[in-house]
């Protein structure tokens, strides 16, 4: 059970995390509450792609020793709900902004959520990382990694949009 929920975690703790995701989603969705017709396929594609990549990547990188173990339910919710749905929508709202702005926005929001998960579930904990002896080093580096979400997503959308693969639409850049 520890592998699924994490040590000392109950479903109530997870409900709290989901509530946090929901509140963050409300905030993220604020500037653009509705998906435009031409962005729907892109959104759902990114949701599925990132959720899958994150879920498998988190485990694989744990196996490689690059990351700490995320309890399975934590990994599932973080990958699907936070990275998939919430960051997907954040990208929808922010994808026309300069890349450096997007990078900061993604890294910062990610940091907030990871902090919350760390506080509630005890995950994302590591005493030192990359030679830095500070418990926040791991959190900061992982958040910075999340900052690459918009850069990678843009590259994928542009690449697939060239031939409208999977129905992806990439508008011509001005």
């Amino acid at each position: 059970m520890n592998d699924i929920l994490g040590a000392n975690n109950s479903l109530l703790d997870y409900a709290l995390v989901v509530l946090l995701y929901g509140l963050m989603f409300l905030l993220i969705r604020y500037p653009r509450p509705h998906l435009e017709l031409n962005y729907r396929t892109n959104y759902f594609f990114l949701v599925i792609l990132w959720a899958f990549l994150m879920f498998t990547g988190n485990y694989l990188f744990y196996r490689l020793g690059v990351m700490t173990f995320l309890p399975w339910l934590n990994n599932l919710l973080h990958s699907c709900v936070w990275v998939g749905l919430c960051l997907g929508w954040l990208y929808y709202c922010a994808h026309e902004r300069p890349l450096w702005e997007q990078f900061i926005l993604f890294a910062f929001t990610s940091f907030l959520v990871k902090m919350a998960e760390h506080a509630v579930l005890g995950s994302w904990a590591r005493d030192s990382y990359l030679g830095i002896r500070n418990p926040y080093a791991y959190l900061v580096v992982m958040s910075i990694v999340d900052g690459f979400y918009p850069i990678i997503s843009q590259w994928i959308i542009q690449a697939l949009g060239r031939k409208s693969t999977f129905g992806i639409y990439a508008p011509r850049l001005a």
Binding site: L37, S164, G167
Partner: peptide, 12 residues
């Protein structure tokens, strides 16, 4: 109706 152009763009 929803129409889709070859570049993936949709119109309603």
């Amino acid at each position: 109706l929803i129409g889709r152009f070859r570049n993936g763009r949709k119109i309603d």
